[in-house]
Design a binder for these strands. Structure first.
Lengths: 152, 152
DNA sequence: CGGACTGGGTTCTGAAAGCGAACGCAAATG
DNA sequence: CATTTGCGTTCGCTTTCAGAACCCAGTCCG
């Protein structure tokens, strides 16, 4: 299969992967969630090459995950990249990775702890049924064709 | 930064990304969750090149996400790749991608619907506080250094 | 005013990763 | 035997990437 065809697959896992599935994009987004906004700061904290960062940021802007805007920093016009609502909705993806990473790739305990600001509890992701509320494992879930398949 | 250094970063997002962050690995896992076990079937349903599939499966086996085992198919010895418990725990990552994909990249509605087998409700992911149970958005979460940072 | 610095990129080149097709190999089948 | 099937590996070519150099505009420094 050619390199970019994933995004046309009728699958809601494949399409996001076409956008986010590379070594850097999710790390860039992690920084965005941590408050990073400027090119230079992405470059120094993420550690990828400037050229690639430029391409990645451009793609995220085009996908409406980041928004590029000018603003006034005392005396100069600067640019910043900020998360859109669509981008902010990717938070669960990062949290899912983090949860797994904490469990399996952090033998000495988590590197960062994510806490509920108000009560100090830990943030966690739960996979539940939206009707009866029970927590679901892989075995409890079945898959069927949805409406999007017909028109594609 | 060199290509494989992400896996040594002290960050529970970066480390999983080093393992899963490419165009195919998550798609291979999607198929594994759908019950695919054999090389040939991964190759034909995922659509990546055989050489790369070989490398990817090898990496997943080495990471203990898949397990390669021989079994007896009537008259021949065959191999299969099955999810380990560690691999099964990646289900939330796929569900997080799917949730986002359904919302933003599937204009005619979801391609597949994931249902709770017992009650027919929809499977969904919730980001909650493990102490007080409230649903969390990005703003409600703060990050602090954890125990894993000291020894790295 | 002229020169250096800074933020934010773009361009260039060699190295690495990825693709499809061809090949290898072992077991079963005809 | 010759063929097929399942499961990869090897080979040659193309695409992507890293890193460094370069560019440009605004600002600060003397």
């Amino acid at each position: 299969m050619a390199y970019g065809d994933l995004e046309h697959e009728p699958c809601s896992i494949a399409r996001p992967v076409a956008l986010l599935g590379d070594r850097w994009t999710l790390i860039v987004l992690r920084q965005a969630f941590a408050g990073v906004r400027r090119f230079e700061e992405f470059q120094s904290t993420v550690g990828l090459s400037r050229s690639l960062l430029s391409v990645r940021l451009g793609r995220l802007v085009e996908a409406d995950i980041l928004e590029r805007s000018a603003y006034r920093d005392e005396r100069r016009t600067r640019h910043e990249y900020r998360l859109t609502d669509k981008g902010r909705d990717l938070y669960p993806v990062l949290m899912a990775l983090r949860t797994w990473g904490d469990k399996y790739l952090a033998p000495d305990g988590p590197f960062q702890v994510y806490r509920h600001r108000d009560c100090g509890g830990r943030a966690e992701l739960r996979h539940v049924c939206d009707r009866c509320g029970t927590q679901l494992s892989v075995r409890d879930v079945c898959v069927e064709a949805g409406p999007g398949l017909e028109r594609s």
